[in-house]
Design a protein around this nucleic acid. Sequence first.
RNA 1: GCAGGCGUGGUCUAGUCUGGUAUGACUAGGGGUUUCCAACCCCUCAACCUGGGUUCAAAUCCCGGCGCCUGCACCA
Length: 540
Amino acid sequence: MQDGEIRVDFQKVIAVATKRGIFQPAFDAYGGLAGFLDYGPVGVRMRRRILEMWRKHYVINAGCLELDGALIGPESMFQASGHLGEFDDALVDCKECGKQFRADHLVDGGEEMSRSELAKKIINISCPSCSSPLSEMSAFNLMFSTSVGAGKGSPGYLRPETAQSIFLAFPWLLRQNRGKLPFAGAQIGRSFRNEISPRQGPLRMREFTQMEVEHFFLPTNEPSLPTELRNTKITLLSADGKESQTTVGQAFDSEVVTSSLVATHLARAQDFLISIGVPPGKLRFRQHGSNEMAHYSSDCWDGEINTSLGWVEIVGVAHRGDYDLSAHGNASSREFRVPIPGTEKEMELWKPDIGKLGKEFKGDAKLILEAIKNVELKPNTSLNINGKDIVLSEDYMSQKTERISEMVYPNVVEPSFGLDRILYCLLESSWNIDGEREWISLPQDTSPYDLLVAPLMTKDGLDTKAHEIMKSAIDIGIDAYYDEAGSIGRRYARADEIGIFYSMTIDHQTLEDGTITLRERDSKNQSRVSLEDALNQVRR
RNA sequence: GCAGGCGUGGUCUAGUCUGGUAUGACUAGGGGUUUCCAACCCCUCAACCUGGGUUCAAAUCCCGGCGCCUGCACCA
């Protein structure tokens, strides 16, 4: 079977997902609500295992600092992050044919205009499709809004990405890292976007789980591409349309990927995805064109999987520059900059003697302090305060020695994974069909269960023995599933359908010599081994 | 959000045109039999998306809502 082959379609995956307890539409009993899913017993296990693998890669191995941020944020924060402005589309629709357009796309230079300007211009424009008059402009924001507190409360929004939590926590995380750059924050959590028309189940959700890393570094000292990642094979589709199968090292050397940290995270993302079972032949990284780029990003590569629905984005590796930290630095009261090492200078500075200024100038002292805030103070500085010329002599100031560094906003590279999409793509791409037999061929690490425990029959004490074995498997940390219903073949089929990695069958010989039959899912190979050997093999 | 199509047990489906106690299969559960890759026999559970209208009577006809699919638009 070919690596890149597509063997199953969307409808089929959704049908089996429902049948086998992976996921189903939420609020089904009330007619459903588009864009929301419930995960069932098997789905929750799969998600948990994918998350475990992600944490292993990014938190445990790569040493990212993990955060779990609040879901609801204040308006001022989203103002600063750009989400209130940029996530907000001004829409008009045609009164005649009902088509809907983005107002800023209909007006020349509309993308640069303020809302009120746009509203004035749009009055004179008619429907591009049928030339009928257009409706008044209405705003649509993709963020869910709510109100915080009693009564009218203050406006709040559900976060549309987990990233902002990490940006806001940057000064705090930096202290946890004892002031050292580079470092990365990592977060797993839910995000919310009020999509206009969510479709295709887990691929376009209104509530979804993100796994994000924000890797902070000094712009003057970008982490280099680690040598062990240079040979990572990767398929790249750059913005100019050229597709290349190359290595991360070559892509960086030839400047297809210009940032060493972006290159690093392309390699890491690829490693992670392959480790959870994404077939390399179905994976590529596609560079965004400049018109596609999000408001914060200067370079972005989407990791995409080839599915029955076309290429589906499951991870974005974005160079966000200093967009977010400088936005929060400017809008909030906190310092988000860091000193640039080596720029530390000793300076002789004159500081005003506020006590003396106050005694001498009384009410004007405040104005003087403000006036000297932005100039370099030295003896006999002359100022104009309320039309009066004032010369500050040495008596009003004293000289101090200070060590000062240049300050800079760190830059950030962000790999951002969508868990729900990953799970869907994994189900689809690991689907195998062989005649009547259909099974999910996930690596053991992301299979929902390690082991099926099945007595060949439910008599002669075989089921009792199987229960005992079940317990001993669970005791040593094996995720085991017990099934005694129906023929053994049927049980294998059920186990295969959700991708249980091993099956263990208990028969009469088990009662005599303690051996069992161990079956491996993909090959269907069976071997008779002692229970102890079997459990050791199954144990992860 | 617009247009078109669709909505029947857990799943797939017949029935809708032509209004009258909803068909079949699979799955699942119980029992029997058998035992290493969805075997067989018996039994059981279980459905007309929702709200209104027309009618003696609505799964069926009409209108609204919700959901799904396709196309357009949108998409970090």
